[in-house]
Design a protein around this nucleic acid. Structure first.
Lengths: 238, 238
DNA sequence: TAGTGGTCTAGACCACCGG
DNA sequence: CGGTGGTCTAGACCACTAT
């Protein structure tokens, strides 16, 4: 009945009731919620009031709203536990039986100032690769990678959706890398993220910026990866 | 003039124009934006349309809206770079000249099932500490910590706002710990986070769950720390 | 008390999706 | 086509802040 007589704003009550539905499993993951109009009628409020509550649910990832179809209960935010030691992320996921593809959406030559500062990359032009990774068919993360252009200019020509950059560098360049440093941060999805990762504006992304170096200790690769917060967890064993 | 004739919705144009103001420094950090009513008039749209744009700015942390006063341009999202190796976070920040306080907001005895799974803590009741850390007077992170209750029951009695848990454990219990494992994730702020950290619902938090073990390799402390995403960056040197 | 943001309603039109 | 969510307006009232 949801006759919850709360003191706060009405959309809070609606939000509370809807959250209750989800927690109680009255609407299961994958199922559609009643339409906004019907919810408005059922709760005795205006549709905009319902939308306020639905917006909060969407921002926290509890539901997923699709224009023209409805709002669907999201799958529980399962997370891959990615272990930064061990092989590359792609190899790791494939070992877990996931289908992983990485599409090269853009590549360009940029001055070395374009990479995040304090990277340790050598001076000179850089090759910048913009990729989108999909796991089991769903957008998972975006990455921007910088490499010395003179050395790696041939990469875009041989890229395929099944490329693992780590594997490619080892196979084609004989390059075995190890991790130099990592930075972890949480940022809201911007317009480009929302578009590429199929999420709402502002949802949390886990941002990992890192550098790898070659056998001689020279930094040869810098990458910034923005991953859906509900889809990842980095585990570091010490 | 902002006669930007864009194709998308109007609130996008408003958002774009406001973002332009901020980027160009036409409104500086700490200054107040015009009132919603005035913005509505100036952009020739309804106040709700302006609010849609302001809401996005607030969620990305670009502005900060205060009931009854107005919307203020946020300080640039400066981030502490916290190095997980090296001393405790508190000690590290104080070395950087920050004033750090940690208020104990609650403590209780809970069954061992209350801690995040796979922690490695011994069975038996746990002491759970809920704390809020402020840096330079502003809320910065919330933490929940679990310890064996029988061994550490006296901690709440001696807690002060200047306590560093690491320091306390070493001083009062002769305990020197080292890191066992860490998990990094990004999650949206829930109601409790929003309240304690003074942020909007749903803004990104960087969540760090970790365990420390004593000299014998026994896990003695598990902690989950939820920090404002615009205020932190974890750096790991490898 | 005046000005600000927060909430809510009523009603409209558009854009998208599916059959 | 009908149903859905996305946007927008008009107007009202409430809650909070400052003076």
């Amino acid at each position: 009945m949801s006759a919850t007589a709360q003191p706060g704003p009405q959309w809070r009550r609606v939000l509370g009731d809807l959250t209750g539905w989800l927690d109680a499993g009255e609407v299961r993951p994958g199922e559609r919620l009643p339409s906004e109009a019907e919810l408005a009628e059922r709760f005795g409020v205006h549709r905009l009031t319902v939308r306020q509550a639905l917006g909060e649910l969407a921002r926290t990832g509890a539901i997923r709203t699709v224009h023209g179809r409805g709002s669907y209960v999201a799958e529980p935010p399962y997370r891959f536990r990615v272990v930064p030691d061990a092989p590359s992320i792609v190899a790791q996921m494939r070992e877990q039986g996931r289908s992983v593809t990485q599409r090269l959406v853009a590549h360009s030559v940029v001055p070395s100032t374009a990479a995040p500062d304090a990277t340790g990359l050598p001076d000179g032009d850089l090759l910048q690769l913009d990729t989108v990774m999909c796991v089991d068919g769903a957008p998972w993360s975006r990455a921007t990678t910088w490499l010395a252009h003179d050395r790696f200019a041939g990469i875009p020509a041989v890229w395929t959706d099944n490329t693992s950059l780590t594997g490619l560098l080892q196979a084609a360049y004989g390059l075995r890398m190890r991790r130099a440093w990592r930075r972890y941060a949480a940022e809201p999805a911007g317009p480009a993220d929302a578009d590429a990762l199929d999420v709402a504006l502002g949802v949390p992304l886990l941002v990992l910026v890192g550098a790898n170096c070659d056998q001689d200790g020279e930094v040869t690769l810098v990458a910034a990866r923005r991953t859906r917060g509900d889809r990842i967890e980095y585990v570091v064993e010490l």
